[in-house]
Design a protein around this nucleic acid. Structure first.
Length: 129
RNA sequence: CGAGCAGGCGGAACAGCAGCGUGUACAGCGCCGAAAGGCCGUGCAUGAGGAAAGUCCGGGCUUCACAGGGCAAGGAUAGCUGCUAACGGCAGCCGGAGGCGACUCUAGGGAAAGUGCAACAGAAAGAAACCGCCGUCUUACUAGGCGGCAAGGAUGGAACGGCGAGGUAAGAGCUCACCAGCGUAUAGGAGACUAUGCGGCUAUGUAAACCCUAUCCGAAGCAACACCGCAACGAGGCACCAAUCCGCUUGCCCGGCGGGCCUCACCUAGGUGGCUUGAGCCUUUUGGCGACAAAAGGCCUAGAAAGAUUGCUGUUUGAAACAGAACUCGGCUUACACGCCUGGUCGCUGA
RNA sequence: CGGGGUGUAGCGCAGUUUGGUAGCGUGCUUGGUUCGGGACCAAGAGGCCGCGGGUUCAAGUCCCGCCACUCCGA
């Protein structure tokens, strides 16, 4: 599945200002609706993460975690921004993938799934589109 | 065997699954588009460094300026000879400093062109005289005046060459030997410079203080620059105040909405080129102490644009260092786990 | 890619131009004053001047190389 990338600074700024977010020491996820009918994803690593090698690794690890998830259930029409933090380049993609999945659920981007909903944490509220 | 010195090389490897950039071939003729073409799929090939880093120097390239020469200003460099496209880089050598040595370090022109500064201390920081030494005069008899001197003391980072002998009232390059410094001649050397002789007999340090001398330097940088180019703005031409005309709304009608048209120039968003064959890399031979040069043969080796060799697992041997091309090349500087190679030196021991 | 600034006591800043004693405010400590506290008065402590070399008799200051933070332009 091909993912459209976010590449304009104003789109990132819109996500930071108007979007919902979920935070974790390894990852921060922002999401905001767009009107394009498809998802766009942007991955960033600021200078706080480290030098160029560390920033590149942080982006790659996050991208690998994204690819390991089964995202057919993802709702359409969102801009999603994934921000790396200082410890991200030290982690493995297998430890980031559950964090990312939990963030997506918290932000209400997963389609309604009866089995998971019955088992999983009911404290995470479902947000209607 | 131990200690120490100098130089160089490499910079984890392999396998499985999944995935990325570029190039190329093929296919569905699937999707988008007026077209050119693009997107999706598969196969093959290929895909970061010794520092890619810092951006400290010097080139290529591009645009602008000057198109001849000189001067000024500003900046950089500073022993000599060479290497190089060039350099503030490199090689060899000279002088100085350090080390028993292998070897290391060295911004190393000019202080009699001029100016400034040298705190405190000290008499004095450059044409010196506080204590002092000597001679002489006065004298209240332990002080003072005049003259000579710069050896000794004291201060300092530094005190008008060092040291010894002669000499003298006391002294002093006043005289002499040696040494250091300056000038000059000869010899050697490509030169820096070295060696020897002779001469006069002496003017501290600081130029990474101002400065002087010699040499070099036009400015900006690939977000440069070139080309294409919705909209908007500008110029010209043609229409003329018409809605019975034109465009859109699925082909036609009704209805609705909108409306001067064409050309040129400039050019925004954006796109394309610049973009990788180059003072290129590898091997061998020759010349040179060396930096390097020449010849022959062979090779093509990243070119992205949110930005590409990665994620997970396993084995070796373990949890691998510093770290990611962004137009490009030569250097410099800085960071770096681990593994290895070569050549000298010193000490001890054995043959 | 190009250009600039800052780093000094716990904190905020002078001093660097023209090299010789590191200082100001605030905070801290001790003492005084007050029934006690604040304010006030007096005394005092606290600095490898971001790091490493060099020039110099002597470096916070001059020169070179690094590090960190920060600003500006294309």
């Amino acid at each position: 599945m091909k993912v459209v990338k976010l590449n304009q600074n104003r789109d990132f700024q819109r996500a930071y200002r108007k979007g919902k977010f979920a935070a974790h020491p390894l990852l921060v996820t922002y999401a905001v609706k767009n009107r394009m009918g498809e998802n766009r994803i942007g991955i960033t690593a600021s200078k706080k993460v480290g030098n160029a090698v560390k920033r590149n690794r942080a982006r790659r690890v996050i991208a690998a975690a994204w690819n390991t998830l089964q995202l057919q259930k993802l709702k359409k029409g969102y801009d999603i921004v994934l921000v790396a933090r200082a410890k991200t380049p030290l982690a493995k993609s297998t430890t980031i993938a559950p964090v990312l999945e939990k963030h997506l659920q918290k932000l209400g981007l997963m389609e309604h799934d009866q089995k998971r909903d019955a088992v999983d944490d009911p404290a995470v509220p479902e947000i209607s589109v």
